[in-house]
Every structure is written in C-alpha cells, then in structure tokens.
Amino acid sequence: MSNDRVTLTDKQRRAQRSRSIALAVALAAFVVIVYVGTWAKLGANILSRPM
C-alpha cells in the first residue's frame, strides 16, 4: 500500500469547515423544527397513544 494521502490546502480546509458548520446548523434546526412542530400540531394529544 502506498502512502498517497490527500492534503487539503488552507482554502479547502476553511471551505470544508464552513460547510460542516452549516450542515450541523441545518440538521440541528431541522431537529428543533420537527420537535417544536410536533408539539404545536398535536398539542395535548401528544400524550394520547391509544393501543
């Protein structure tokens, strides 16, 4: 196995970090939206789980 490795340039590293942060924020926002939206949509019925 050879030692070919990818070395990121500074610009690529900064860009990757920027994309990673944006993706993390978007995912966290989506989780919050689903959580809060579920409460708003179902209200008290969220506890009603007929079997």
């Binding site: 990818v6 990121l8 610009k11 690529q12 900064r14 860009a15 990757q16 920027s18 994309r19 944006a22």
Partner: peptide, 15 residues
C-alpha cells in the same frame, strides 16, 4: 480550477 482531486472550495455562502 481544482485539478488535484476535485476537492471542493465551496463555502456555505456558495450554497
């Protein structure tokens, strides 16, 4: 612009 391996230089602002 990037001919090494196709690593992106796109920032979040590009998206």
């Amino acid at each position: 612009l990037d001919t090494s391996i196709g690593l992106s230089e796109a920032n979040a602002s590009d998206y």
